[in-house]
């Protein structure tokens, strides 16, 4: 499947088809989505601005498809654009930051074509958690009698009247994504590292703003605030920035214990995207929880 060649010429909804098609076989291979902060560690007595860029792309931290945001002139997307399920999803994407004292600040953002951008001001000491949140995405997959894979946005209940008569291998999937990073002004704090209890998250053995090359960090995957129950349906993939400047992605795939624990020794300094997912069966179909966490590793 030539994803790379196709993406340049097709619309966002078509991109989603490709994304879903690849998800259909291996959930861990969804298109990466990420937020990259201008700084993860700031110091001094002045408030510090932190710029945030976020996007969906295959090349880690090289933007491809913006994730919502107002136009440069400040206009929000129209309802007509919102009729497209993908555009509707983009319209509902929201950047926010949780301050060290637990205050949640919603951020207005601007769509710059390939990426969405915003910023916040770190004026308190401690660790901020940045979140790009999207509503859950329901997709119904099926095959035609010719064996062609197709998809419709919506739960099975919502789309069943629109399914062709010959539809078979029907699979209902719901995607629940978390896109996160952490930023610390002066002293670190741990309040924002504790799992919020919603979706797929991590506990951090080392503070995410104190990672150094050649040092080891332990993590545990948490689903809705509790350690995941098994490691059969979970994947973790850690990829360093700059995939477009090398021929191999060289992702690290640590083994995950039955309690969702894993560890990593950072091979070198850089910005990494930690992608984790966990799939469960629910009454209405499969639910795929995913986490996209941006981490900065300092040189020794």
């Amino acid at each position: 499947m030539n994803i790379f060649a196709s993406i340049k010429t097709i619309s966002t909804s078509a991109v989603c088809v490709l994304a879903i098609n690849s998800l259909y076989t291996v959930p861990a291979n969804a298109h990466s989505r990420w937020v990259i902060p201008s700084h993860t560690v700031v110091s001094g007595d002045k408030p510090m601005s932190i710029s945030l860029d976020y996007s969906i792309s295959n090349d880690i931290f090289h933007p491809d498809i913006a994730l919502g945001g107002a136009s440069l002139s400040g206009e929000k997307q129209t309802k007509e654009q919102g009729a497209n399920p993908m555009a509707a999803l983009m319209m509902q994407t929201q950047a926010s930051v949780v301050t060290p004292v637990g205050e949640i600040i919603s951020l207005s953002s601007v769509n710059l074509g390939r990426k969405t951008s915003t910023f916040f001001t770190a004026d308190k000491a401690g660790t901020y958690r940045v979140e790009i949140s999207q509503p859950a995405i329901d997709v119904t997959l099926y095959k035609t009698d010719k064996g062609e894979a197709q998809r419709l946005f919506g739960t099975y209940e919502a789309v069943k009247s629109r399914l062709p008569k010959d539809a078979n291998a029907i699979d209902a999937l719901q995607f629940i994504n978390r896109i996160q990073t952490f930023v610390t002004h002066n002293e670190i704090s741990t309040k924002n590292l504790r799992p919020s209890g919603e979706g797929l998250e991590l506990t951090h053995g080392t503070h995410p703003n104190e990672l150094f090359a050649l040092e080891q960090t332990r993590y545990q995957l948490m689903l809705n605030g509790r350690p995941i129950g098994d490691n059969k349906n979970s994947h973790v993939k850690i990829t360093k920035a700059g995939t477009r400047f090398r021929n191999q992605r060289a992702s690290l795939q640590p083994s995950i214990s039955s309690k969702g624990e894993f560890q990593i020794t950072w091979p070198e300094a850089g910005v990494y995207l930690l992608e984790a997912d966990y799939e469960i069966e629910s009454e209405s179909g499969k639910v795929v929880y995913a986490l996209f966490l941006t981490l900065e590793v300092h040189p020794e």
Partner: peptide, 11 residues
């Protein structure tokens, strides 16, 4: 102090 964080290990 804005640049103290660049002394990464000490910081």
């Amino acid at each position: 102090a804005e640049w103290l964080k660049d002394l990464r290990q000490w910081w």
